[in-house]
Design a protein around this nucleic acid. Sequence first.
DNA 1: TAAACGTGGGC
DNA 2: TGCCCACGTTT
Length: 302
Amino acid sequence: MPRVDAGLTGEQRRVLLSAESGLRDLPWRRTRDPWSVLVAEVMLQQTQVARAEHRWVAFLKRFPTTAACAEAPLSELLEEWAGLGYPRRARNLQLTAIQVESNGGVIPNRLEDLLTLPGVGPYTARAVLAFAFEEDAAIVDTNLGRILARRAGRPLGRAEAQAQADAWLPSGQSWAWNQALLDIGALRCRPQAPVCTGCPVRRTCAWARASWPAPDPAAGSAAVSTRQAKFEGSARQARGRLLRAAQQGAVSPEGLSAAAGLEGQADAQARARAVADSLVSDGLLERDGASNWVISGTTPNP
DNA sequence: TAAACGTGGGC
DNA sequence: TGCCCACGTTT
């Protein structure tokens, strides 16, 4: 563990000290295995820490390597993913495992290569660099986006936020630095009622120094999550229902509307078909020999 | 109940 | 390039 020492600003020293004095004890913080880190980061895309913790352990127990994940039937991945939401993340994870296997079985350690992997974007690529390879890379997720905007005292654009994060990162301390800021974002620099007392960033935080004037600079700033469209009655809801139904067994053309939970609604057939098509586009469903919808890669009943 | 440790496609 | 939108489920 590198010592927190000279060459750093006082602010950088304080942030790193906060990591030394104790980060949250999360299971993925105990590994540097690239596949394990990648699975964690994909799982944490739009899923809260509390819900991902035990699922990450179970997923890796079943698919400990990219080879194991690449070879498994998609239906098995979806079983392990059930309840986490956004199942195309599981599909992309498998496509990534397949791509890695076809390239020698080694997860890349360069940003541009990581970005070619399905489901790996600017955040996840840098998280793998920082948390698996301990290379200098500044992550910008909703937590960092919030911290950066408040510190700047104004909403930031995407490139601007990334540039500030890059400039802020102390060289050679990428792992601890990024983990520290994730905890500061989640526990202190929260969306509502931030806990600024004792915050290592407070002295350089423009928003705090100005006594938190409205509006919150994080609102509308890059990478900061925003409210979603209504879920009830949405295509997303129908997708979830149809995929769950297909996991129980092949869905016939006649049973499609009911499986998607759209029975009795106007344009039920057309809507259900559109929902099925979107799942096919994502590589989650396919048609079998009898035109039933089944999980991709599964064999129809003889 | 609103919010939760993003990515990819379209314009 | 950059903004908008779709994408699931749980507590």
